[in-house]
């Protein structure tokens, strides 16, 4: 999975996206916040969604508890 490196750590883009998602965002706003192209945001949301690190409701994405744990583990 591209958002998670082979050693289990988060990719740099995944870290930036998850950190930004401590506040709910729509993909377009997330692109503006992170400075990443929208296609990378969509791909990262899909991948981190499959890993249950983020959740979506009505087009708005939020960090899950698992996502928060992943960020904390990565920072440790």
């Amino acid at each position: 999975m591209a958002c998670i490196n082979p050693d289990g750590t988060l990719s740099e883009v995944a870290k930036a996206v998850l950190a930004a998602l401590r506040r709910p965002h729509r993909p377009e706003d997330l692109a503006a916040t992170t400075g990443l192209p929208l296609y990378r945001i969509r791909a990262t949301l899909r991948e981190t969604g499959r890993a249950r690190l983020v959740a979506e409701r009505d087009g708005v994405y939020v960090l899950t508890e698992l996502g928060e744990e992943a960020l904390e583990l990565d920072a440790a």
Binding site: A2, C3, L38, Y39, R40, R42, A43, T44, R46
Partner: peptide, 16 residues
């Protein structure tokens, strides 16, 4: 597909 920018789908580019 796997790309140098992670796994991307054509759908990710929708609107561009």
């Amino acid at each position: 597909a796997e790309t140098t920018h992670g796994r991307l789908s054509l759908e990710d580019f929708r609107g561009s």
